[in-house]
């Protein structure tokens, strides 16, 4: 059977991402299927396409965003790529604030769509970038639209209607565990809300870096960060702290052993997912785990501005 994917616009290419079963890194849990949901298959290459598109479309519908305004937001990268892509497709100029130590690849991608980038102090991290975007938007509300991915309900709703619904369609009653990292927390909030409506219980496990100073780009250490307004701790059942090294090593293994070259935060998600599967296997319990692959590893090839000769 061939499904037609002849689409009228790049915006229609968002979502309906594949679930791929892992075979090798799960060898110690042969009876527990672990699936990676490849959000890197979105047209902008990351899970952030879903939230960015919905935030823009909903704001266009009710007039918060018009083609006479410029969209401005803070982003460590993937959301910026998504805004840039859909901004180009929908005819809306985009301006982004990001810490200057965001990977060069992502700055270049955003610029390729015509986006203007303003750099914030890398020592202040993403919270510093949020402050600048907020201030600029407040000073010029007539010309700037600030979607504020950390507070915008359309961020989690994109996952409620998209990610969560797709997982239930593809796995139905099989799925027992869902794993996603916390950045804005939109993926976990929206997907978990949908999964919790299912008639069978599904454990939702949130991944976060084990320390405020970490190398899992896109993830937030909630205890030491500005907590996003959309984040509700009660939406997930467990919090799994992953070290940078474990996330990076799993990303390497996924490339070499599964043919999936994913980013570091996805490595952390899959590290956690494989641990859950191994534990279920040891305990003789049934299960099926789904984890989010947020983006591809090639986003992280280029050294960042500050480390001109740095090799990972």
């Amino acid at each position: 059977m061939i499904d037609s994917r002849r689409l009228a616009s790049v915006t229609e290419a968002v979502g309906d991402t594949p679930l791929v079963r892992l075979r090798v890194v799960t060898k110690d849990a042969p009876d527990i299927p672990v699936y990676a949901k490849l959000e890197c298959s979105n047209p902008g290459g990351s899970v952030k396409d879903r939230a960015a598109l919905r935030m823009m479309q909903e704001a266009l519908k009710d007039g918060r965003l018009t083609r006479k305004k410029t969209l401005i937001d803070s982003t460590s990268g993937n959301t910026g790529v998504a805004y840039s892509l859909f901004g180009a497709a929908l005819g809306i100029p985009v301006k982004l604030v990001m810490p200057s130590n965001v990977s060069k690849a992502r700055k270049d991608i955003a610029r390729a769509f015509g986006t203007e980038i303003l750099f914030s102090d890398p020592l202040e991290g993403s919270d510093g970038a949020i402050g600048i975007a907020k201030r600029m938007a407040a000073e010029d509300p007539e010309l700037l639209y600030y979607p504020d991915q950390y507070s915008n309900p359309d961020n989690p709703l994109a996952h409620y209607y998209g990610t969560g619904t797709e997982i239930l369609r593809d796995l139905g009653d099989q799925i027992t565990h869902f794993v996603a990292g916390l950045g804005t927390s939109g993926t976990m909030m929206g997907t978990a809300r949908r999964l919790k409506e299912h008639h069978r219980p599904i454990q939702c496990v949130a991944v976060e870096p084990d320390s405020p100073m970490h190398g899992l780009e896109g993830l937030k250490h909630m205890a030491s960060s500005l907590v996003p307004a959309i984040y509700d701790r009660s939406m997930h059942d467990e919090l799994c702290a992953v070290t940078t090294e474990d996330g990076w090593d799993m990303a390497d293994r996924l490339a070499r052993e599964e043919g999936m070259h994913v980013g570091h935060s996805s490595g952390a998600n899959l590290f956690c997912a494989v641990n859950i599967a191994e534990k279920l296997q040891r305990e003789g319990k049934p299960g099926c785990v789904v984890a989010i692959v947020c983006d591809r590893g090639d986003r992280y090839f280029s050294p960042v501005k500050w480390d001109k000769r740095y090799v990972w």
Partner: peptide, 10 residues
């Protein structure tokens, strides 16, 4: 001396 994370968080 400046200590800089190799990546940007959240």
């Amino acid at each position: 001396i400046t200590i800089v994370p190799a990546i940007a968080g959240g």
